[in-house]
Structure formats: C-alpha cells, structure tokens
Design a protein around this nucleic acid. Sequence first.
RNA 1: CGGGGCGUAGCGCAGUCUGGUUAGCGCACUUGACUGGGGGUCAAGGGGCCGAAGGUUCGAAUCCUUUCGCCCCGACCA
Length: 481
Amino acid sequence: MSKKAERITPRSEDYSRWYLDVIRQGSLAEPAEVVKGCMVIKPHGYAIWEKIQRALDDMFKATGHQNAYFPMLIPESFIKKEAEHVEGFSPELAVVTHAGGKELDEPYVVRPTSETIIGHFFSRWIESYRDLPLLINQWANVMRWELRTRMFLRTGEFLWQEGHTAHSNHEEAKQEVIRMLNIYAKFAQEWMAMPVIRGLKTQSEKFAGALESYCIEAMMQDGKALQAGTSHDLGQNFGKAFDVKFQSKQGSTEYVWQTSWGVSTRLIGGLIMTHSDDNGLVLPPKLAPVQVALVPIFGKGADEGAVKEAGEKVAAGLREKGISVVFDTREYKPGFKYFEWEQKGVPIRLELGQRDLDKNQVMLKERIAQGKEPATLDGLADNILERLDKMQTGLLSAAQKRLDDNTVEVDSYDDFREIFSGAESKFVWAHWDGTMETEAKIKEETKATIRCIPLEGSKEAGRCMVTGAPSTQRVVFAKSY
RNA sequence: CGGGGCGUAGCGCAGUCUGGUUAGCGCACUUGACUGGGGGUCAAGGGGCCGAAGGUUCGAAUCCUUUCGCCCCGACCA
C-alpha cells in the first residue's frame, strides 16, 4: 500500500473528505482555526488567485472598467437604506461597535458587499448624463457571518471582485449585466476549463436588492452545482436609496440605473472540484502558477555540476517562451518531489539526469497522463507549449463531457424525485410553473433547487412537472453547494 | 440552532472506559554516513502547561463540574 493511497480518500467514498485532502496536500489553504469560519490562503493557493485576478482584470479593463477602492467599514445606517438589502444581509453581518477605546455613536458593519457605500459615493460623483456610464470595479475582501462554512466555497471572509456600474437608462444597464455575465462565462470556459450554464436566478434566489440576478452555474464531479459568478440588474433600487441622480440631456433629474457583478475565491473551489483526481490537484495550464517542474537527478556517476548547469539552461529556455518553471534543486529525493508537484497540480514535470544529458533529452510526464517519455532538448519549449495547450482544451472537453453525461431532461415528477433520492445530483432540465410555491415544494421534497432559468438551450413550451400548469421553457434543477 | 465527531509535539493519532514509573507512536524536523530515474536506509538528536478553569484524590491526560474552541452533516448563503 503506497503512502498516497493512505493519504488520499477516493472521491467515491467521501467527496467532501477528498476535496479537503486535495486542498491540504496541494498546499492551497488551511482553516484559520483561531478565526471562526475563515481560512488562510497559502502561497500556492494565492498564486492561483493572482492568475485569476490578472486574467479577469484584463477583461474588465478591455471593456472600459476602472479599478477603485472603498472602505471596508460601512455605517450601519447605509445597510438599512435599501429594504430588501437589509433583510437579506442582516443575519450575516459582523458589526464594529467599539473603536479608540470607546463605544461608537453609530456602529460600522464589516462590508458583506459594497453596493451601499459605493452608492453613497456614486451620488457624489455623478451629476450629469456626461458622467455616465460609470464603470467601476473593486478587488477586495468581504465578510459574511455564515452559519456553515466550507473551504473556498463559503468562508467567513473571502476575496472577490465586485463591479459596480451606473447608467443613464435601464436598457444600457441590462446590456452591461449580460455583457459581464458573458465575460464570466468566457473566463470560466477559456481559463478555468470549466463549462458553465448561464441563466437567470428565480426571484427567491436573486441578490437581496436586485431586480434580477443572472449567474453562471458549473457542475462539480459529484454532479452538484456551484454558482460560480453573478451579475445583477439593480434597477434604480440603490439609486433611490442613496440618491444617485443625474441631469439628463433634456434637463430632467433622474435616478441612475445600476448593476453589480462579482466572482470570488470560490472559483478556486470550483477549479479544484472540476478537475482534480485522486492524486491531488489538477490545474488548467493557463491558471497554473507553476507550469513546469524540472527535477534534477543527482546520482552515481552523475556530474552534479553539469546536471545543474544543464537544468538552469533548460529552465531559462522555457522561461524565454513565457513558460513558468521551477527548477527544483531542493535536497529531497526525486520521488518525493514528483509526488509533491503532482499534488500541487503542476501540468508538466521534467526529469533531468546524467542519462538524459548524454542523450540530449529530458524525461517528460504530464499530470494526467500515465507514463513518462523522453523529449529532446531541441525545440523543447515549443513541444511543451503545444502540450500545455492540448491539456487546457483536454480538460475543458472532459469537463464538458461530464456535464453532458450528467444532464437530463425530465418530464415526470416521479422520475425527478428518483434522480434526487440519494446523495447524487445531476443537472435536470424540467418544466416549472414559475411559482415560488412549487419551487419551495420541490426544494423541500428533494433538496434540489432551481439553479437558473437558462439562457442557452431550447425554449420549447411545456407543462410543469408538479402542477401541470403551462411553462414557457425548461429550467435547470440540481443540488448545490 | 439541531445532529455527530474531536481538542495530547509542527501534522496525524494512541493512551481516557478500569487514576499510579520519567506521557507514547507514525510522519515531519536537526546532525552524520551511505544514497539518489516514483514518497530512501542506518545511527544519534531536538521538540509537550495532555484546550482552559475549578473540584475529588496520597496521586489526574484519565473521574466530576463549568467553560472555550475546532471539524463534519442539515437549515441560511458567493
């Protein structure tokens, strides 16, 4: 029995345990313990977040958004200004009541999201239609005192990006909502290799204070859904609550139309649960902080200096082509390093020893391939770039296949209940009558929720599987995280 | 808040039921030698307020009371 078998729990037995093991062994994060419900993101985990940040930030900038920063503490009265918002967030607020050695006149809440304080400043920044649209993004931490937390998926404090925009008319705001939703979907597919369903949240699942919330939903390896990103049409709700007005071309005074949209460190959880296997983390090359781990082999008959020198040269050659390489010269045995890099999800491992030097080659092992093979040093970088590219698309198609294989259309509620009777989950496309009562009944009886009213797929009409009332299109049900 | 686990070395745990040498094991760590192509071997070391506070006792990791915290499963949510 190998050590790895002792350490990693097969996902079939206990998915949750497997997930935590991958995080721990991949050295991504650990529970903060001393801070309830929070986690410490370790360097390797944070490096993945930085890759995500950079990619998204480029996309935001390319669509005309600017980064800004707003305070972490929000006057309690701000939160109370929008009725639905306060109702939705009150239960999970952390509140600062004392500072400077005395009780504060008005408590501050630690931001759970920044619509309110940004609304306050928008009202000062916006005066004319010429100031619109105002397209702002903030990279920040937020805090929500959740009842139950899970590493990366739901932590007391988490890192995210929240976009906040103001527009002169509803139509333009709606376009922004969909534009950003599409950017999220594109990022999920092209960078994370994680296919998603875009859709509209039901009224009971929407953001507190929004008119409508859109989302991208991804399927994890156990068939459960993960809400991976959201984009909200806030209408004039916050505009009215914070008096964000502008003078139109015609001279009238109007409230702005706002949007907000965000993705969080939850994406890392999604990444883990989408691709990883029983050997640990698997990262899509585009988001892997280390794309190539080069392991030198020093042994009997090896000229250590020559191997080191050759290794440096190989690493430099790859870096020149934009490949991120770690030349791992630490004083550990090669086998130890192999396992470590594998658990950290490094896409490609190279081994370089005297034998290889003699043959002008390295040994190459892909993270998800079986064996290893020799690769000549001539044109190595191009070889690797091609492989990384292939791995990226390979991961996406594997995830897409899993999504397709676990997606079904269902017309009878009996069949529906059967699917969700055990611990398993699938994406079930079924007709629903559009009422909150039916939605609640289904959730109560099966634990499955409406993930979204999908934008994709056919829009054929039908009859609700529960009540038989008419339905204009199928909606997506699943158990979720 | 309900249900279930658990706090003993950096990590993972045994010991607790049935109190009794100097509190133990694996991994990790340090030093040295041999090693080195899939988690090395041998030898020698370092590291503990047994979660906290009270109590019972000649004697407490162990029994009693109180308390703090963590993890997992539900209800709430990105």
